[in-house]
Each structure stands twice: as C-alpha cells, then as structure tokens.
C-alpha cells in the first residue's frame, strides 16, 4: 500500500540515464524521459533504435547496465513482481497462443492475473466487442488487425495501471492502423498512461508527446507540434513526372540541404534559412524546368513532425518509414 502512496505522487513512468549494451552493440545509451499521468507517449524511432530493449527493461524482462527506471513508482529491478501484476504489456511480435481460440487466450491471461473476462469487460469492451464474433476462432487464424486487437485485450483485461505497447502497428494495414490509434485515443480518455513505440513517423501526431530515439539515444522529447515548430529551414513540396530523377536533380541542386520522398511528393529543404521563400520557389521552378521536368508543382509548406524527425536524425530516407 505504501508503494501506491509513493506512486501517486510521481509520474507513472520515469527513466533516468538508462544504458544497455549487447556485447558490441549499444542498444540504449543514457536514455531519460518521463510519462505523465494520463499521457499517451510515443517512442518513435527506426529499426534497431533500441525501442524493444527499452520496453523489455521497463517490463522487467531485462536489467539495465546502468541508470534507473521506475514504473508506477516501483523500481524495475528491485520491485519486479509488484510491477508484473500491475502493468499491461503487448510485445512487438504477436505473442499469444496461436493454437488457442480468441476466448481461450483472453480468459487464460485474465485468469493468471486472478481475474476473468467478465470482470475486465468494462475496460476491454470497446475492443472486445469487435472480435467477439470470432471468439471461437484459433488466434493463429486471425487477420493481422484482429490479432492486434486480441493482443491489446489480453494486455488490458486485468485493468493495468500503465500500458506498454511495443510497435503495435508494425505489419498491419493502413486502415487497421488508423482504427488502432482511435482505440488508443479512447483508452487514454479513461486516464490510462500509455507508452507506445512505432517506426511510423506519421503516427507521432496521434500522441500527446513523443520521444524520438535513434541508435539508442533520445534525440528530442516534446509535443509533436512543438517538435515540428523546431524545423529551421524553408521547406518545399515538389511534384513532377519522374520522381526518382526528381530526387536526384534536387540533391544535385547547389542549395539543397536535404531531399526525401514524402508520399507521392518530394520534400526539399533549402540550406539558406534567411532567404525569402518566394525567391527560393521561383529559382527552384526555373532549375527544374530547365532540367526537363514536366507536370511540375512546387509549393512552400510548413514542416510537419515527420520533417522535423528527418532533420533531427540527419539520415537518408532509407532508414525511416515516412507516411505512405
């Protein structure tokens, strides 16, 4: 009970200087951030950034080399058993029993927490109602989106006080992704703090705050809009008939700072931060028309959170999954 008193006075999740290596690989390096009460916090980063390693530490499956972390005010190393019964965890990979039915999986996870589907019904209802028609189907035979909803139900059925979702939308179609985020939004309204990781940068906008992680380091922690507002350079969206060639030409342009595909357009940022936007647009249009592009559209835009991430990571587009 004293644990609880301590917990209520603190942020539900605090990470302070956590590092972890696997032999040569530095998976996490001095990671610090906190998730506040009732907050939907997104951890955004490319493959291999260290997201899963961090989740495993926070869910007591792994011990950090250095640094400390508290979940609900409980130390992840010392108080592992207290943490285990009070958090909900959805691992990155589908980790339910494919040979058990939807209902069997759910009631199994409910029962190991000493509860039942009926008792957990209130919290899982919005999600479970969608998969209940398939409750006798083997979990292994569900579609990706359904599997994910079932996994979320299993992580929620014991009414956890904080939720950890590791890349819940990876490998799921766009519609299911959107639906899933809608569900998270609804859950958040119930006051449940949620830490969710993703490699899709466009999903960052669905979070209250995001932490951008790359190669084990946190590059920025802020609200998505605030991160977007940090974008320092003029940004221009370009469309032309041959996109691949367009990227090449833009990269060759003498004032180019960065160029990356974005949907069916290409985002171009100019190195001359002080120059007037209209002038840049006009120059660029002349340059591209001169290079033989047709069907040209060149328009100034304000940076989104994804552009800000690209800027912060300073990486070629290949390592991140931009909006589809």
């Amino acid at each position: 009970m004293t644990d609880h008193a301590v917990a209520s006075s603190r942020a539900p999740l605090e990470v302070r200087g956590v590092s972890r290596r696997f032999e040569e690989t530095v998976a996490l390096s001095d990671v610090s951030f906190a998730v506040n009460a009732g907050e939907l916090f997104g951890l955004v980063g490319p493959d291999g950034a260290g997201k899963t390693t961090l989740f495993r530490i926070l869910t007591t499956l792994l011990v950090p080399d250095s640094g400390t972390a508290t979940v609900l005010g409980l130390d992840v190393v010392r108080d592992l058993w207290a943490i285990r019964s009070r958090v909900g965890y959805m691992p990155g990979r589908f980790s339910l029993y494919p040979d058990l039915s939807v209902e069997e999986n759910l009631s199994f996870f409910a029962s190991v927490f000493g509860t039942s589907i009926d008792e957990g019904r209130a919290i899982i209802a919005p999600i479970y109602d969608q998969i209940e028609p398939f409750k006798d189907r083997r979990a292994g035979a569900l579609s990706g989106g359904m599997k994910q909803k079932l996994a979320l139900c299993c992580a929620l059925v014991h009414c956890p006080e904080i939720l950890f979702l590791d890349e819940p939308t990876t490998g799921v179609d766009a519609v299911s992704r959107r639906e899933f985020w809608d569900l998270l939004g609804a859950l958040k309204k119930s006051g449940l703090p949620i830490l969710v990781s993703t490699a899709y940068m466009d999903e960052a906008t669905r979070c209250d705050r995001v932490g951008l992680i790359q190669r084990g380091r946190i590059l920025a922690v802020d609200a998505p809009a605030a991160i977007a507002a940090r974008y320092p350079n003029p940004l221009i969206a370009v469309h032309a008939n041959e996109r691949h060639k367009l990227i090449q030409s833009l990269r060759d342009y003498q004032h180019a700072k960065s160029v990356y595909p974005f949907g069916d357009e290409v985002h171009y940022s100019d190195a001359r931060a002080a120059k007037a936007m209209d002038d840049i647009v006009a120059e660029l249009r002349t340059y591209l028309a001169g290079s033989g592009f047709t069907d040209l559209r060149v328009k100034p835009i304000s940076a989104g959170v994804e552009d800000a991430f690209m800027e912060l990571m300073g990486q070629p587009e290949a390592t991140v999954r931009a909006a589809a």
Binding site: T59, L61, W81, R84, S85, Y89, P91, S95, F113, G114
Partner: peptide, 12 residues
C-alpha cells in the same frame, strides 16, 4: 513464439 516474455510480465 514470444509467449514466454508475455507470461513473464504476469504474476506467474
């Protein structure tokens, strides 16, 4: 299958 991890984050 990863279910061992899932089981480890329970009071079992």
């Amino acid at each position: 299958a990863g279910t061992l991890d899932q089981l480890n984050v329970t009071p079992i």
